[in-house]
């Protein structure tokens, strides 16, 4: 999306029993889909491929995995950062 920088700041916060990541703030290419972030969290948290990661925006909804981070940033970023919560079981059902 025009107006969204090529690289955006994403802040990841654990929810429930999700493992805490050593680094929580990332600079990510905004053209990437949400699924890329999910894969990275799995890698960083050393989760098994069979384990799930659920991502939430504003502790309210899970975006579609093929949604571009740029779109989420455009609509939901606050103070220049996109804050996402991650969980290993479904939250905010």
């Amino acid at each position: 999306m025009e107006g969204v920088p090529e690289k955006i700041d994403v802040l990841l916060k654990p929810t429930g029993d999700a493992p805490i990541l050593k680094i929580q703030k990332f600079s990510v290419r905004s053209e990437l889909p949400v699924s890329d972030l999910v894969l990275n969290i799995k890698k960083l948290a050393k989760l098994q491929p069979s384990e799930s990661v659920f991502l939430y925006v504003n502790q309210a909804f899970a975006p579609a995995l093929d949604e571009k981070l740029a779109t989420l940033f455009e609509v939901y970023a606050t103070n220049g950062k996109l804050v996402l919560h991650y969980a290993t079981t479904e939250a905010w059902g």
């Binding site: 925006v57 309210a60 909804f61 975006p63 579609a64 995995l65 093929d66 905010w92």
Partner: peptide, 29 residues
Amino acid sequence: EVLACPSRQVAEAQFLNSIKEADFLKTRK
């Protein structure tokens, strides 16, 4: 290019998430 949708339940969960997003935009959930 597309997400896998192995069952109707997956599609329904996605649908409800879209409703949640819409409600967040309107009323902050």
